[in-house]
């Protein structure tokens, strides 16, 4: 596992800013709008996604390297990844529920919610597509998770302020959130020359 690729810092910055999962790749939009009403919720969701992304990308990289590539069935990665990620999340949830009930309560419904989250699946598929090594995929998953959390926090901070703003009646709630997301995405495109 020592083929040359982009350096770890490039991958990390790329995942956090340039190829941000939400604003540049448009993955994981449902939690982006669903859980971005309060900063505290956004933080727990971000933490849960980052955790699952890390575990999932470690597992899927192992499977990709030692099962899919040797048997030349790389095209099967989507269906196998779904299976593996779903059961991994299940195991993690069971583990947290039985060992640390406080943590389980604070993560609440978010863990089962991200079982089939497209952002998690997206990171693992990007890892496979770019043929990242184990270390590279861990860094890319970490970057993806942090970028996702950052986006959720920015969005929830804006939406908390919007609660007090005098928005026109037809724009209240989700419509104005969609417009904000579009403007944020435009702003994020400014990072595209960074790497």
């Amino acid at each position: 596992m020592s083929e040359a690729g982009p350096s770890l810092i490039t991958i990390f910055i790329g995942m956090v800013l340039v190829n941000n999962l939400i604003l540049a790749k448009f993955l994981g939009l449902c939690p982006f709008f669903g859980v971005s009403k309060k900063i505290t919720n956004a933080l727990s969701m971000g933490a849960a996604v980052t955790l699952v992304m890390l575990i999932a990308s470690i597992a899927t990289t192992l499977i990709y390297r030692f099962i899919l590539v040797p048997f030349k069935v790389e095209f099967m990665n989507i269906i196998i990844y779904i299976l593996v990620i779903a059961s991994l999340v299940q195991i993690v949830e069971l583990f947290i529920k039985r060992t640390n009930i406080t943590l389980y309560n604070s993560l609440g419904i978010y863990l089962p919610l991200i079982t089939t989250n497209c952002a998690v699946l997206g990171v693992t598929l990007i890892n496979a597509q770019e043929n990242y090594t184990m270390l590279q995929s861990i860094v890319s998953a970490l970057g993806g998770g942090i970028g996702f959390t950052l986006m959720l926090i920015i969005m929830s901070a804006i939406r908390e302020r919007l609660e007090f703003a005098d928005t026109p009646k037809s724009m209240r709630g989700l419509p104005i959130a969609f417009i904000i997301a579009a403007i944020l995405s435009l702003a994020y495109m400014g990072f595209s020359g960074l790497i």
Binding site: I63, L83, V84, S87, I91
Partner: peptide, 14 residues
């Protein structure tokens, strides 16, 4: 075989 094996392993792990 691979799909079944992966599914089975996941199930057994859970």
């Amino acid at each position: 075989a691979i799909l079944t094996a992966v599914g089975l392993i996941c199930g057994v792990l859970i």
